[in-house]
Design a protein around this nucleic acid. Structure first.
Lengths: 112, 112
DNA sequence: TTTTATCATCGTAATATTGCAATGTAATTA
DNA sequence: TAATTACATTGCAATATTACGATGATAAAA
């Protein structure tokens, strides 16, 4: 019914799915990549960089912030966003854990 | 308006986002993990394993198959699904590419 | 103080996703 | 052949996501 039955799955499966949603939209990937590129922790220059409306960017930033992937700090009238490298490490670990499960039990020709 | 503006982003950003959607639901993660665990390329035992209806499982399997992450081969009346390890390597590469971008330009204390 | 700049939030419209019952299809079995 | 088994597809209903205009809040500038 449009609602995910989270109670059927493990906490880790739900967490991984939740974090994957952060990457499940090209705008959020673009935002993350831009934050990485311009290390200076840039703010709403993103509105110019991507072609989306300010409200839309703000919404994507909020999702990334809610998931903990980025942090925002007030800088006068504007706001500096940047990668939360601690959380990032955790995410990387979760994904690599999934990837390793496959790598370890499924070589190129052992499957099908 | 509920539709992603893919034309604003690069092909790689769109592809990564598309693939991330595969992981953006706990049921699909559970399916992938189960396929990995039971190397024997199991079929609709998944309906018992997860608590979801047959139609729902079938739908998730289709999405994973459309993205190329799994393959299905007819085995009499039932169907054997299994990981497509080739595609899996590619996905792993894409995600690691994103992770590395962060790792290389953003150490634990250089940000914010 | 008034204006301007920078963001966040609200409200709304459009589209996407999730889930399942019902039904359809193909192979197996009785 | 008729019944059964194993899935896929279809057709909803409910919820989630994406996008943006309008509005609000806050800080700097005039």
């Amino acid at each position: 019914m449009g609602i995910t039955k989270t109670d059927l799955f493990t906490a880790e499966q739900n967490e991984l799915a939740q974090l994957a949603k952060a990457f499940a939209h090209p705008a959020r990937i673009a935002i993350l990549q831009y934050l990485v590129k311009s290390k200076s922790c840039i703010n709403g220059t993103l509105v110019q960089e991507l072609g989306l409306a300010q409200a839309t960017i703000s919404q994507h930033l909020r999702e990334l912030k809610d998931l903990g992937l980025i942090k925002g700090s007030i800088e006068g009238a504007s706001i500096s966003y940047c990668i939360n490298s601690q959380k990032w490490d955790q995410v990387q670990g979760l994904f690599n854990g999934l990837f390793d499960q496959v790598n370890n039990s499924c070589s190129s020709d052992s499957c099908c």
